[in-house]
């Protein structure tokens, strides 16, 4: 078994038009920049991009590759000019933007990966998020039915991986990557280091190899970025 691919370009080669792409990362931390760049270069279009942050989905929207985004932030929390561009795309019917409460987004993806079709949550009751969804009372409280999400492809970022696909994350950069990796047909992990087989402590594996189909060493590693720069 050897899941290591030589370049990010090789690893994303077969991603097709119309795919649902789940992207890991949070606020600039744990973002698979190399895979995002490779997929933009590869040219797949009509994508549905699922991520929490415009840092991951906006490049696809800006270049006309995304038909739909599903995200906790369908605006840009800091840069008003990006929010304006997104609003323009949405008004012109070029982009569909589904705003999802962040916890619900993660749980829908986790459910997708864990074989759970749907779940009830308090989050979003009495808000625009509940529109069109089933509501049901448990113990005197109303909950919303939220359905699972799955991807054709998941792009995630780790610190180390071995050739079996076991991924170790660094500090808080595991964030969404650990969840996203479970929920796609093809999960690709970019990492800073490829570790020799047997060198990773089994207790330290953040993403078990069964969830990871491909591993690639990142050619560029971002150590810090100003939030405004994507």
């Amino acid at each position: 078994m050897d899941k290591v691919f030589s370049t990010p370009q090789e690893a994303v080669k077969e991603v097709r038009d119309g795919s649902v792409v789940i992207v890991g990362g949070f606020g600039g931390s744990g973002v698979p920049y190399n895979l995002i760049e490779a997929l933009l270069d590869q040219g797949a279009k009509d994508l549905t991009v699922i991520s929490n942050d415009p840092m991951e989905w906006f490049p696809f929207a800006e270049k006309g590759r995304a038909r739909k985004v599903i995200s906790g932030f369908t605006n840009h929390p800091v840069r008003a000019e990006i929010t304006e561009q997104v609003e323009k795309l949405v008004r012109a019917g070029k982009l569909e933007a589904e705003a999802v409460p962040h916890g619900t987004l993660e749980e829908r993806i986790r459910a997708g990966g864990m074989g759970i079709a749907a779940f009830y949550t308090l989050t979003g009751v009495g808000t625009p998020v509940e529109v069109g969804k089933e509501k049901r009372a448990f113990n005197g409280k109303e909950y919303l039915l939220e359905t699972a999400l799955k991807g054709d492809v998941a792009l995630v970022k780790g610190f180390q991986a071995d050739r079996f696909g076991n991924v170790v994350c660094r500090l808080a950069a595991g964030n969404r990557n650990i969840v996203m990796a479970c929920a796609a047909t093809l999960t690709i992990a970019e990492v800073e280091e490829i570790a020799p087989p047997g060198s990773i402590d089994p207790n330290r594996v953040d993403i078990p190899g069964i969830f990871v189909n491909r591993v690639v060493q990142a050619s560029k590693v971002v150590r810090w970025l100003v939030r405004g720069e994507m």
């Binding site: 906790g72 929010t83 609003e87 705003a99 409460p101 619900t104």
Partner: peptide, 21 residues
């Protein structure tokens, strides 16, 4: 706290979960 009335898109982020949880 996530969207003003005139906005097409908005930032829910973790606010709805934090508010109920």
């Amino acid at each position: 706290n996530w969207k003003r009335g005139d906005q097409v898109v908005g930032g829910i982020g973790g606010a709805m979960d934090l508010a109920i949880g």
